[in-house]
Write a protein that binds this DNA or RNA. Structure first.
Lengths: 212, 212, 212, 212
DNA sequence: CGCTAACCGAGACGGTACGTCTAGTCTTATG
DNA sequence: CATAAGACTAGACGTACCGTCTCGGTTAGCG
């Protein structure tokens, strides 16, 4: 599922010899610079979190100029997000067995584990945290991350509704927030742990209803 | 509007009696200083949000010393939270008519309106955002705000369960996060608006279940 | 509402390693900091000249913060000048033997040697150079250095005039510029060397006149 | 005397023939590029002085590439100087009436007025200022400006000496610095104004001597 | 007269320094 | 002795230039 965030470090740099005539100055291919910056930002983000994440340090780590970073990323939040997004490929697939409860439970369980067991949880929580005072990051996060992933879940719910497994008058947007949104809420508030039990209960409560 | 920068205005230059050059130095009653600081912090928090909120500015506004602030509050996040908490008294009462759906809908609707229509929404979102990189704030927020308010909701759910309106095997903690947590998620992500429709649907989905 | 902000600080961390009471932070005696900065600035100015002189490097050398420097010196030119001025004590005494030609020649010769043989020459030239685009430095330089030193020379000329050694209708300001100003001109243009011959000729031309 | 900024105005934008969307790319006649750069540099130098004069801005103003500028001028000081030199033609003629005092006074007076009443004064002061930390500019300034102009003055003094108006043992180099150098000194230090009185006194002091 | 090499504009790039801001620590003097 | 005042270090902020270098394009001039 989640995919190896390490591969971001591919363009491995630093032959310690540095025999090239000119090391740093002058123009370099934009894509090479971009990916070095993103790789450095990702490394920094994972090792120190958003606290301790600064454009200054990313520039130093990447061997890049601050100006270059400012040209391409409007705020440090956006940089952090893009660095993180570029390094992961967490495809939360939505299985389709025809049993909506099983499918949802499987997906939400995977989501819960992703948030709990990988760096993704902490990173996303901090990014959303930063987005509260960084509108550019908020917009980017919604556009690049939130909307596409919500779409996957809602699409599955729509299929289930067409199959008659969900009432036709249910607002699937709301339903979606009661599944994955509740997980995110636990991630950010940390008042209760993210468990597989949680995932199962989230789905069951909604499908069956909590009335006797 | 608010005013009373109270004793901040004390630097009575030339009261002809007091010939000492230093106006405000020396020991003052702790409670007076504390409340002046909290008042200034609250004013600043409401006018500029967490961006633009700094201990430096609070100290200047309150006519207090930074040292004093650091003695009482470990981080600016904690200060902001306590300042905000001290200024509000938003008791979200939980009605008890015996009809759990109506009671929950009323409560969640009020909660949605609070988040949407008052400063509380933005302030809380920013505080939770800051808490992602401020463990002290996170702990304080959970202890002082989250846990007591969750307790109110869960207590009502427990009553309903004892009355046989909710199945006995339902995890009320999870249920709680699917109601109020989903609201908070919308508040922070802003992908969809906070509406009365949302409040009603959150409750209905869970009580009735979404199956036909 | 809130309560006990103190307990928030419980999670006390203390890496047990750092037992030092803190090396650098916090307030230090102003005069100590000032003199450390001036000493560092003087060292830098002498070793690299005004090119290579930057507030950033002075701060690093002095172990001081840039903020502190900006609080006390308006421009780097002024800082460089004060650093230099604080480190020298070049009293160009004006002998008074009664023989105005001998006295002037002695003084101007000393001045020429100062400009030619010590760091003073290069430093002053670069400071005056910087003053051309730094009004604050220009003003400071005039006030602290130029005016007092001109006064010494002009005072000696006035004495000579009262003794009848200089015509009463001679503008001593102009005369002064033809002596020391001409030296400064050679210092800055470097079109001809600064020699003892120059000093003697400057004086002789003016006292005797160049007519046969 | 002065002027002819003539060739500065050459930048023919929009010859209506060229309809291509790209105006400036590709090879262009070297001389056209050079003069556009010099014109832009001169404009910038006069409007903002050496502070605010940067190769970056000249390039932008001239529609030229920084690379092109660096190919032809080693430092921004040299560029500024050549730009200024190319725009003026201030021939300070030396009259020859046979009366050396009158001739010198006329010339020095004109010089004083040039420094005081035209942009030349400020520009030259700033160029000499910049030259203190720019050896290339210093060398260029001496070679192109200083030496030729000094030669004119010294030649006139030599003629006067041959006519017996100046003693044969007078060092004309020194004498020259006591005339025009003293003016430059006032220009740069600004401790006293540049006046016609100054010009007359400079000459009289030297020719007559200041002794009674 | 067409091809190609020299040249140009545009501007990205690594750096250095700018001047400002805040966090958090520490000192002094007051009351 | 707790406080106000505020000086101090540390370090990030976002901007401006420097001088180098790459790219895509244009013309000049050679063949």
């Amino acid at each position: 599922m989640v995919r190896d965030p390490s591969s971001a470090g591919q363009e491995e740099q630093d032959s310690p010899v540095r025999s090239e005539p000119r090391p740093g100055r002058g123009r370099r291919p934009a894509q090479q610079v971009r990916s070095q910056i993103l790789a450095a930002a990702d490394r920094l983000l994972r090792s120190e979190g958003m606290a301790g994440f600064s454009i200054e340090r990313v520039a130093a780590l990447a061997g890049a100029s601050k100006m270059t970073i400012y040209k391409w990323w409007p705020t440090k939040g956006v940089l952090a997000f893009e660095a993180y997004a570029a390094s992961v490929d967490d495809v939360l697939t939505m299985p389709d067995t025809g049993d909506i409860e099983a499918d949802l439970t499987a997906n939400v369980t995977t989501f819960v584990r992703l948030l709990r067991d990988t760096a993704a949880g902490r990173v996303m929580a901090e990014l959303i945290g930063a987005a509260q005072t960084d509108p550019q990051l908020a917009a980017t996060f919604r556009r690049v991350y939130l909307v596409p992933r919500r779409a996957v879940g809602i699409a599955a719910l729509q299929v289930a509704r067409q199959r008659g497994q969900i009432r036709s008058d249910v607002d699937l947007e709301v339903l979606s927030d009661q599944l994955w949104g509740a997980c995110m809420y636990r991630l950010m508030m940390q008042h209760e742990p993210l468990t597989e039990h949680l995932a199962a209960e989230l789905v069951r409560n909604l499908l069956t209803g909590v009335r006797p």
